[in-house]
């Protein structure tokens, strides 16, 4: 219930209506949305029980390594009610054609694979919020100093998932494990998306806000 309350409000992409759709416009819109989402994710992380008691340095290392996973998991969850469309925001939904224009066909295909997995499992909101917190706690950053404290954070959230499943889905004893087994695909997808935006940064054609750049460079 704590995680349900900590869930942030929806953001809007607000693409510039005066600019025609193009690859650069799509990337500009997504980078701007991601920059604003990052601010929200950072304050969300502070509401995860145990996160704020970590050292500032460990909090930074964790967020720098998992922020894209948190972003993608949110996008995947928002896309659950749609057919083969990626919901970056309620006002920014990419179908196949738009994905092609935006140069995101392959990436959106990866995200769709994740969405299909969660769809087939009928992922619930409670499971989504625990999984998102677990993705945060599951950082494998080599820069973490107090590994034990991070492990404890992981254990508490893992426990929450097991508790939820044993009370809500007792007829599906392997459901918690099944959910955890989606985390590798989430990481793989997030890494691909990071690569994509890092290359865009190198090209230098898309304006990027400071926080987004800072996290991309980390």
């Amino acid at each position: 219930s704590h995680l349900m309350v900590a869930e942030p409000e929806k953001l809007y992409a607000m693409p510039d209506p005066t600019v025609p759709d193009s690859y650069v416009k799509a990337m500009t819109t997504l980078c701007d949305l991601a920059d604003r989402e990052l601010v929200v994710i950072i304050s969300w992380a502070k509401n995860i029980p145990g996160f704020s008691s970590l050292s500032l340095s460990d909090q930074m290392s964790i967020l720098q390594s998992v922020w894209m996973e948190i972003l993608i998991l949110g996008v995947a969850y928002r896309s659950l009610a749609f057919d083969d469309e990626i919901v970056y925001a309620q006002d920014y939904i990419m179908d196949e054609e738009f994905s092609r224009t935006a140069g995101m066909l392959d990436l959106n295909g990866c995200i769709l694979q994740l969405v299909r997995k969660y769809k087939s499992m009928k992922l619930e909101k409670e499971e989504f919020v625990i999984l998102k917190a677990l993705a945060l706690a599951n950082s494998d950053s080599v820069h973490i100093e107090d590994v034990e404290a991070v492990q404890k954070l992981q254990d508490v959230l893992h426990e929450a998932l097991i508790d939820f499943e044993s009370s809500k889905q007792p007829e599906e004893p392997r459901r918690a494990g099944k959910l955890l087994m989606t985390l590798p695909l989430l990481r793989q997808t997030a890494n691909k998306v990071l690569h994509h935006f890092y290359n865009i940064k190198l090209e230098g054609k898309v304006p990027m806000h400071k926080l987004f750049l800072e996290m991309l460079e980390a």
Binding site: V39, I42, S43, K46, L56, S57, Q59, M60, L63, Q64, K210, L211, E214, M215, E217, A218
Partner: peptide, 15 residues
Amino acid sequence: KEKHKILHRLLQDST
């Protein structure tokens, strides 16, 4: 840490 000053500041903000 100087390179990551925005993240640092946002984590330190109390809000």
